[in-house]
Simulated assay, not measured.
Amino acid sequence: MEIARVADHNADLRRSAFKLNSPASKAVIEQFLQIVDKGEFIELLIASVTTLTYLSHTFQATEMRIIGLLVQLLDDKAVVVIREVVVALTMFLGEGGG
């Protein structure tokens, strides 16, 4: 999560550490997506959503798999989860993604 936070503000790091065609990067991102999909542990869920938010510059705004998982979380009863999801969706659909 911390690497993603720094990468959010450092395009060179983002390009080198989170290349979408890199097998290692794909594996890490897949793990975050699985955590979001399962949504079992709130602390881990929030950290994963936050990390995806940091990485929103890496993805295309049309990345429907990520957006779909985030939208599903809007039904979560925990306000803190909903808040993180709204921030993430804002980044993906607004200023961040693309």
Rank of each mutant, 00 (worst) to 15 (best):
Q34M: 10
E95S: 10
E30F: 15
R83T: 10
M1S: 15
A27T: 08
I66C: 01
R65D: 14
L73C: 05
E40P: 08
K77S: 11
V87N: 09
Q72K: 11
S48F: 01
I66T: 02
V36Y: 00
I67K: 03
R5W: 15
R5Y: 14
D12Y: 15
D8V: 12
T90I: 12
L52M: 07
A11I: 15
A27Y: 11
S22D: 13
R15K: 12
V79Y: 12
I35M: 06
L13C: 04
A17S: 10
S16T: 10
E43A: 09
V80A: 10
Q60E: 14
G97K: 03
N21Q: 10
A11R: 13
R65V: 15
V85F: 00
T51F: 01
D76E: 08
I67P: 03
K26I: 09
V81Y: 01
V81K: 02
V80E: 07
I82E: 07
K77G: 11
L73D: 00
V85I: 06
L13W: 02
T58W: 04
R83Q: 14
A27E: 09
G94K: 04
L52H: 01
D75F: 11
A88M: 03
E43Y: 09
I42D: 10
V79H: 15
Q60A: 14
E30A: 15
I42A: 09
V49G: 00
S25G: 07
V85R: 00
H9I: 12
G68Y: 04
K19V: 13
E95I: 09
F32N: 00
T58R: 02
V80C: 07
E40A: 09
S16L: 10
T53M: 06
I42F: 11
L55T: 00
Y54S: 05
A4Y: 04
N21E: 08
L52T: 00
I66Y: 03
V81I: 06
V6H: 09
V86E: 07
L52F: 05
R14L: 10
I29C: 00
L73F: 03
I66Q: 00
L20R: 07
I46T: 04
P23V: 04
T50C: 07
T51L: 04
M1K: 11
L93W: 06
V80D: 15
A4W: 03
A11M: 14
T53R: 05
L52W: 01
M91W: 12
L70R: 01
V79R: 14
L20D: 06
M1A: 08
A11S: 12
T51K: 04
P23F: 06
F59D: 00
D76F: 05
G39M: 02
